[in-house]
Computed example of a mutant assay.
Amino acid sequence: MSSGSKKITPLFNDYLYGAIRRIATEQGFTPDLFSVDFDEESCIECNGFVSFVFKAIINGDDRELVLWCKVPPNDDQRSMDLFRREVHFYREILPAFYRFQKEKGISEDSDEGFFSAPKCYLAHCDTDKAEPEAAIVLAYDESYERWDWDKLEPINVEHAKLLMRQLGRLHAITFALKEQKPEVFEQFKLKDVLVPNSDLVSLMKESFDRALVTMRTRFAAEQEQIQRIKEAVFQMLTACADPVKSEPYCVVSHGDCWINNLIYGHDENNVATSLTFTDWQSSRYASPLLDLGYFFFLCTGAQFRKDHLDDLLQHYHSSVKDLLDRLGEDTARQFPLTNLHRLMKPFRELLLGDC
C-alpha cells in the first residue's frame, strides 16, 4: 500500500486473542490461570504491505512465553494475497521439508540440513468468514531484536558464506524432493508474484521511485545510472523468476533474500553462528539465481562481488552437493557446478559492473 491519506491498520480481532490462548494451553499453561498481553510498543508496521509484527506475552505457572505475531493490514487485498502465500509456506511447505529431512535421518540438532526458519505455532488465513481470520504466530528470540545490520553497509564475507550454506541446503531439498516425491512436490510450485503489472511489482517500483526522489539532491550526477539499475533489476528478477527459462534447475526460493529478512545469531566472540530466514511471503518456484542474484545485488557492493562472487558461488554449490549427497541424490546429474555458472552468465556483467 503506497503512502497516502488512507491509514494502514492491522487486522486485529478476537480470533488472534483466542488463537494465542489455545497456543498457551498447548504449551502447558494451566487453563484460565494465565494472562495474555500484546506489547503494542513492539509493533513493527509493515513497510507498505504484507504484515504488522508485534509481541504477545503469555504469563502463568511462574513462567513466561513470548511469541511473534504477524497479521496483515486491514482491508487490503494485495497484502492479503501475499500474507496467504506466507501462511501456505509455514503450514504446508516448510513442515514437508522438515519431515523429508527427518525421514532421511537428518535432525535439527545435526547441522546438516535446512531448519533455518522460526518455529511456527500457527499459520492461518480464512477471509471468507464475516470476521476474517488471519495470523502467523512464531517463536520469539531476543536475537531478532538485537540483530540490526546497517542497510547502507555491504555485508561481509563471514555473513555471506553462512547465507550461501543455508541457501544451498534450502535449494538442495527441492532437487531431492522433485526426484523422490514428485507428486508431493508438485503442490509446492508456487507461481511467480512478479508478473508484469502485478501489485507487488507496482509496490516495488513505487519504492524505487521514492528512493530516486530522496537521492536526487545528494546523488544528482548518478540519477541516470540509478534509473538504469532500476530497469536492469526488474529485467533480472523477471528472468530469474521464469521457470521455463531455468528448468530443470528451478527450486522453491525464499524470494526476498536480503539483509532485512535475514537474522544472524552470534557467539560470545561476535562470530556469526546461525541464520534465520523470515518473511516468506515472496516464496515461489524459480531459478536459484533469484535468491542468489537478489542477495548479491542488494546486499553487496561491486568491489565485494569482484573479489568474492566466484568463491561464494562455489561455497553455495558445495552446500547443495553436501545435502544432496546426504539425501541420496547425484549433484553431478541434477545440478552440476557448470550449470550454476551457465545460469549466472547472463547476469555476471550486471553484478560485476560498477552499479
Rank of each mutant, 00 (worst) to 15 (best):
M1W: 02
M1C: 01
K6E: 02
N13E: 01
N13Y: 02
N13T: 01
L16F: 00
R21A: 14
A24G: 05
L33A: 14
L33T: 12
D37S: 11
D39G: 13
E40A: 05
E40N: 03
I44G: 00
V50M: 01
A56W: 01
N59H: 13
G60T: 08
E64T: 09
L65Y: 06
V66G: 02
V66Q: 09
K70N: 01
N74L: 00
N74P: 01
Q77C: 03
R78M: 02
R78D: 03
R84E: 00
V87E: 03
V87C: 05
H88T: 11
H88F: 15
F89R: 01
Y90A: 01
Y90K: 01
R91I: 03
E92H: 09
L94M: 11
L94Y: 14
R99N: 12
K104W: 10
G105D: 07
G105K: 10
D109T: 14
S110P: 07
D111V: 06
D111H: 13
E112L: 11
E112R: 13
K119P: 06
Y121P: 00
H124T: 04
K129S: 08
A130E: 11
E131A: 01
P132N: 00
A134R: 00
A135D: 02
A135S: 06
D141V: 08
S143I: 15
Y144S: 11
R146W: 11
W149Q: 12
W149L: 14
K151E: 13
L152C: 12
E153A: 13
N156Q: 10
V157E: 08
H159L: 13
H159M: 13
Q166K: 09
G168D: 08
G168N: 07
L170A: 09
T174E: 05
T174P: 02
A176L: 06
L177K: 00
K178R: 15
K181Q: 15
P182N: 08
E183D: 15
F185K: 05
E186M: 06
Q187F: 07
K189L: 11
D192E: 11
S198V: 07
L200E: 10
M204P: 05
E206W: 12
E206I: 04
R210F: 03
R210H: 06
A211W: 12
L212A: 11
M215W: 13
R218V: 10
F219E: 10
A220E: 10
E222C: 02
Q223C: 03
R228E: 14
K230Y: 04
A232E: 11
L237Y: 12
A239Y: 09
C240V: 13
D242S: 08
D242G: 06
D242E: 14
C250T: 09
V252Y: 05
D256A: 05
C257H: 04
I259K: 07
N260G: 12
N261A: 05
N261P: 03
D267Y: 13
E268L: 08
N269C: 12
N269I: 09
F277L: 14
D279V: 01
W280S: 04
R284W: 02
R284V: 01
Y285H: 14
L289H: 02
L290S: 02
Y294E: 03
Y294A: 01
F295C: 10
F295I: 11
F296W: 10
T300M: 08
G301W: 08
F304P: 06
R305I: 08
D311Q: 10
L312K: 02
S318G: 13
K321Q: 14
R326C: 06
T338M: 12
T338I: 14
R342F: 09
P346I: 04
L351M: 10
